[in-house]
């Protein structure tokens, strides 16, 4: 008799264990769902992959005209288009990951009600799918840097942990939002506003140096994306390195992520009945 996998089904009471091992067992499903999201997105669009370039590029151009050209916001001595694109890059990664991931459970209702797999896979793979757009947009960044003759240094390697931090931020927030969206569909109407407000609270169009030092910077750092964006500018363009804001950002992300994971697990058992 071969070794049989033994499953014990019991009602879980209150807070469930995270059971992240299960997530590892189902890693191929993460891969396939991510692959599906990417494939479907580009198949349905006439311009296909061009959108990944157009979106950040057009945003950058609008910012350059309004904030750089008309409002003449300071850009730390960097050409404004470069300055804003370096921020639009992580911002769009974050906002698209957040949006996709937050509506992912409801969007995959047919799977949730039919088949068992660790539910965390759904928001997780939605976040991962945003990486492809980011990769393409990043190539444009390199192009812009060459055009403005700003040569990258070894600091550029910091992009990797910073990107991870942006993804974790998106995941942490969307663990909350995706589970809440199953209960209340209001959440998905709220997300565009949320990301819009959040963008103005992040140094995308302006420099983080505009924030007065002291207590204000600490409060500003409560927004994890502030640290990420400041870090991106530093790693790509060599502006001022991240300061205390970064430490606070990381702490906040970790708190949101851990609480989000537990909340998600707690709500998980009702998804199939409520979605």
């Amino acid at each position: 008799m071969p070794d049989l996998q033994i499953t014990h089904i019991r009602p879980t009471q209150g807070w469930a264990a995270l059971n992240l091992k299960d997530l590892w067992l189902y890693r191929e499903l993460v891969y396939f769902l991510t692959w599906r999201d990417i494939k479907v997105r580009y198949k349905q669009a006439i311009l296909g992959i061009a959108w990944a370039i157009l979106q950040p590029l057009l945003t950058m151009i609008v910012f350059s005209i309004i904030f750089g050209g008309l409002a003449k916001l300071p850009s730390d001595g960097i050409p404004y288009p470069l300055f804003s694109y370096a921020a639009v890059l992580p911002w769009q990664l974050f906002s698209s990951a957040l949006h996709r991931s937050s509506v992912s459970l409801v969007g995959n209702a047919n799977l949730l009600t039919k088949i068992y797999f660790p539910r965390l896979i759904i928001p997780f793979s939605a976040v991962m799918a945003s990486l492809v757009d980011f990769g393409i947009a990043f190539l444009v960044m390199i192009g812009l840097m060459l055009y403005y003759q700003v040569w990258p240094t070894l600091l550029i390697l910091w992009i990797i942990p910073l990107t991870l931090l942006a993804l974790l931020t998106a995941l942490a927030v969307s663990l909350w939002l995706s589970a809440l969206n199953v209960l209340y569909r209001d959440v998905q109407h709220m997300i565009p506003f949320l990301t819009q407000f959040w963008m103005y609270a992040s140094p995308v169009a302006y420099s983080a140096d505009l924030i007065p030092t002291g207590i204000w910077r600490i409060i500003y750092g409560l927004n994890p994306m502030a640290g990420v964006i400041q870090g991106f500018r530093w790693a790509l363009l060599g502006t001022r390195p991240p300061d205390i804001m970064m430490g606070i950002s990381i702490a906040i992300v970790l708190i949101l992520l851990v609480t989000g994971l537990f909340y998600f697990r707690r709500m998980e058992k009702t998804f199939a009945d409520r979605v």
């Binding site: 049989l4 009602p11 088949i115």
Partner: peptide, 16 residues
């Protein structure tokens, strides 16, 4: 198939 949890009771399953 573990899509939903029982409110009460226990199920043991031997095998995938």
């Amino acid at each position: 198939s573990r899509v939903t949890e029982p409110t009460k009771g226990v199920v043991d399953i031997y095998g995938r």
